[in-house]
């Protein structure tokens, strides 16, 4: 029954509207508590907020900003996959590209979207995404060579900027990490590995091409 229900096209939009109503109820009760001098109005807000947050937490079904707080809660898989971007310069040399070029988007968010959506994109959609990545990589290269932050997150606070939830590796640290000439192409590659095999030999990672721009 739950499977049948979850397959209904109207379910997700309906749930989004319901979640907006849940948040609206919180705000409405809050305003009511502020306008009324009565303790009863405050109690209504307290009961509602506690009730919603407990239902969300216990059911593990989000209604953000009331949320389930689940983190690394599944059993860790034996095999993992990830992704990387490489830039290719005019001489055909290959350079790793720093994922900070995607900021303000966190790499894990882009990766999750990319794995789920890119294979379904038509050719022109993939080309548009590839061109976007090439432009971003090139802009990041220019910023690095100019001595500026690679991504946008550190523009104001510099090294004091809040890191992403999952701390990311910094591929680029100096101008020597990028070519002097513009990137001519980019390639996204999928990385797959067995955790224990890679522990014994860090090179045991399978790489395969996922997206290249310009194609060819």
């Amino acid at each position: 029954m739950l499977d049948t229900l979850s397959g209904q096209p109207w379910l997700r939009p309906t749930l989004d509207v319901l979640r907006l109503l849940v948040f609206s109820g919180f705000v409405a009760l809050g305003i009511s508590a502020w306008r009324s001098a009565e303790r009863r109005a405050v109690d209504r807000l307290l009961v509602y907020t506690l009730g919603v947050s407990l239902v969300v937490g216990l059911s593990q079904v989000e209604a953000w900003p009331f949320t389930n707080w689940a983190l690394v809660h599944s059993l860790a898989p034996a095999r993992l996959s990830s992704w990387e971007i490489e830039g290719i310069d005019a001489f055909g040399r290959v350079w790793p590209v720093d994922a900070r070029i995607l900021q303000p988007l966190a790499p894990e968010e882009f990766g999750a979207w990319m794995f789920a959506r890119v294979p379904q994109l038509p050719t022109e959609g993939q080309a548009r995404l590839g061109r976007f990545l090439l432009e971003r990589a090139e802009a990041g290269r220019l910023r690095l060579r100019a001595g500026r932050p690679v991504g946008t997150n550190e523009v104001v606070l510099g090294p004091l900027a809040a890191p992403f939830h999952f701390q990311q590796k910094r591929v680029w640290s100096s101008a020597a990490d990028v070519p002097e000439t513009p990137f001519a192409a980019v390639e996204v590659r999928i990385l797959e590995w067995d955790i224990e095999e890679r522990r014994r030999d860090d090179a045991r990672v399978k790489r395969r091409a996922f997206l290249r721009y310009p194609p060819g």
Binding site: Q103, P104, L105, R117, R128, L129, N153, V156
Partner: peptide, 15 residues
């Protein structure tokens, strides 16, 4: 202040 270009996500490709 650490996500100073957050609205810039709207300029990502429509895909």
């Amino acid at each position: 202040l650490s996500r100073v270009d957050l609205p810039g996500l709207l300029s990502f490709p429509p895909e």
